[in-house]
Every structure is written in structure tokens, then in C-alpha cells.
């Protein structure tokens, strides 16, 4: 402990419990993930039926040279981007709406949103599938589209799943932003109004800057969630769509690696995803800091 001041030591002591929990719950799994990604690690190796084989970067080389991986990666990024945009727009619009309506409609709005939020993902996905069933679904009944399959065409299927993802993740954005808007002091908005600012101007120059820290949090959260979507795709498109057309990274990792007992390759995909998400978060935070808004 040479070179660490008394204050520093005290700080370390206070941080130790949290650090232990983080290392145990986050550090160790990530360590294992990275470690396994360097080996040819299948079921035979796990149960001791075959010797371990160090591959170095072999799993990564295999992954990056697979053209399907790049297609799936592009698909995942595009899909996640649409979901994030949709979630933020719907969430923000409804948050604003909630601040403008009376108590009873607001309570109803929150009740509906929290209902969607509280629905388990598998159950929500299945219910959506029932609603959009080709032959017996309510939606096709109402639209008169008997026999139209919503999960057959690649882009229609993506659209349907994206709608479901937005439906089950907008409440988080809505509730957070609603709290944020409510926390903006009334005087600030009033002062802007007295200075003659129009509503759009007030939003742009007063409300949005004040909401910025919250917007950062919900955006990063949404990106991480939507990039890692598994259940909705897996359940609604029957494990990745017709001919694998609706695969996203997580489902791809499951299908190609974990279900096929290729844990080494699966871990490599996991590491790539983690690095991508960490990279995105870092760039985003940095861009914010540069524009003068430290989080």
C-alpha cells in the first residue's frame, strides 16, 4: 500500500464490498467468456471426454471470415437502430402527452404502459404471435387478410418483431422522461416564456438540455437492450425466420454455437458483442463530454 495516502486507503476500504460483488458477478463471467473463446471447447471437452485444444484466435478468425456473421451483424445493427429510434420516439411522445393530460387519462396511460412493461417477454411475444396469426389472428380478421403470414417475408417479420420490442420497452423511456420533465422547475419554463421564446424554441433550448443526462441513460440502455434482443426473434420468427433471414447476433450465437455445443465459438461471439457495445458506449459518452456535458 506504499504510495497510497490514508484517504486513498479509506476510499479503497469503502469501495471493496462493491468491488467484490462486481468482480464476482461481472468480472469472473467475463473472464471465463474470454478464456473459453480461445479454446476449442465443446461438450466432449466439458465432460472430460476429449483433451482441451488451445486455438488462440482461431475462433475469432473463423467467425470474422464467415460471410453470414457479417450479414447478421449488419442486420442486428439496423434492427437495433430502428428499435431504439422507435422506442425513444414513442416513449418521449407519450411522456409529453402524460404531462399534458388530466389525472385519470394519465393514470390509464401509465397503467397500460406498466402492463406492457410487466409482461414477461416470452408471454408477450406469444400473445403478439396469436394476434398476428395467419389464419386465426385478430389482426388478420379485422384487416380481412385471411391467410397472410406476418412472419414469412423477411422485412415484414422484422417490422412485426420491432413493433413488439418497441411495445415492451417504451414504458421505461416514458416513465423516466416523464419524471425528468416533471422535475424541470416551472420558473425556468416560465422565464423562457416571458422572454418571448416560442414552444419549439423552449423545447430546443431549455427542456432538451435539461433532459440530456436522462436521454443519455435511456438511449444507452435501449441500445444495449435492443442489440441483445433474443426472445422476441426466437419466439416470433421460429428461431430466426425463413431460411435464417431474421437472425440477429444473439440468436445466431445460440443457434450456431451454444445449441451446437461449440461453446468456444459462442464465447467468441459474446466477446465481440461485448466489445461492440462497450465501444459504442465509450464513443457516445466521449461525444457528450466533448460537447460540454459530462455525465
Amino acid at each position: 500500500m506504499i504510495g497510497i495516502s490514508r484517504d486513498g486507503r479509506a476510499a479503497l476500504a469503502y469501495l471493496a464490498p462493491a468491488a467484490l460483488v462486481l468482480i464476482g458477478l461481472l468480472g469472473y463471467p467475463i473472464y471465463q467468456l474470454v478464456l473459453i473463446s480461445f479454446y476449442d471447447y465443446g461438450q466432449e471437452q466439458v465432460s472430460g471426454g476429449a483433451p482441451l485444444n488451445w486455438l488462440g484466435l482461431g475462433n475469432y478468425a473463423k467467425l470474422l471470415s464467415d460471410s453470414q456473421f457479417w450479414t447478421v451483424l449488419a442486420q442486428t445493427v439496423g434492427f437495433a437502430a430502428c428499435c431504439v429510434l422507435g422506442t425513444l420516439l414513442v416513449g418521449a411522445a407519450l411522456a409529453v402527452l402524460a404531462t399534458r393530460v388530466r389525472a385519470v387519462p394519465r393514470a390509464l396511460l401509465f397503467l397500460a404502459a406498466l402492463g406492457a412493461w410487466a409482461t414477461p417477454t416470452v408471454a408477450g411475444s406469444t400473445v403478439w404471435l396469436f394476434l398476428f396469426d395467419a389464419n386465426f389472428g385478430l389482426v388478420n380478421e379485422v384487416l380481412g387478410l385471411q391467410g397472410f403470414s406476418w412472419t414469412y417475408d423477411r422485412w415484414v417479420a422484422f417490422g412485426l418483431v420491432a413493433a413488439q420490442v418497441v411495445w415492451c420497452s417504451f414504458p421505461f423511456v416514458m416513465v423516466t422522461l416523464y419524471a425528468g420533465i416533471k422535475a424541470i422547475p416551472g420558473e425556468v419554463v416560465e422565464a423562457a416564456a416571458l422572454d418571448g421564446a416560442s414552444v419549439p424554441r423552449t423545447v430546443r433550448s431549455v427542456i432538451l438540455p435539461l433532459l440530456r443526462p436522462l436521454l443519455v441513460v435511456v438511449t444507452i440502455q435501449s441500445v444495449i437492450w435492443d442489440f441483445k434482443v433474443f426472445t422476441q426473434i426466437y419466439v416470433m420468427t421460429g428461431g430466426g425466420g425463413v431460411a435464417g433471414g431474421n437472425l440477429v447476433l444473439n440468436v445466431y450465437a445460440y443457434q450456431q454455437a451454444f445449441a451446437a455445443s461449440e461453446y468456444g465459438l459462442g464465447s467468441a461471439i459474446g466477446v465481440v458483442m461485448t466489445v461492440l457495445l462497450l465501444g459504442f458506449t465509450a464513443i457516445y459518452l466521449r461525444a457528450l463530454r466533448r460537447s460540454g456535458e459530462a455525465l
Partner: peptide, 14 residues
């Protein structure tokens, strides 16, 4: 060191 020194878990021969 951590990567080189350890290997993923394997259960012994049954």
C-alpha cells in the same frame, strides 16, 4: 498471465 495460466473447467474422466 490469467489467460495463459488457466484453462476452462473440465470434469474428470467418469
Amino acid at each position: 498471465l490469467a489467460v495463459a495460466g488457466c484453462a476452462p473447467v473440465q470434469s474428470g474422466p467418469s
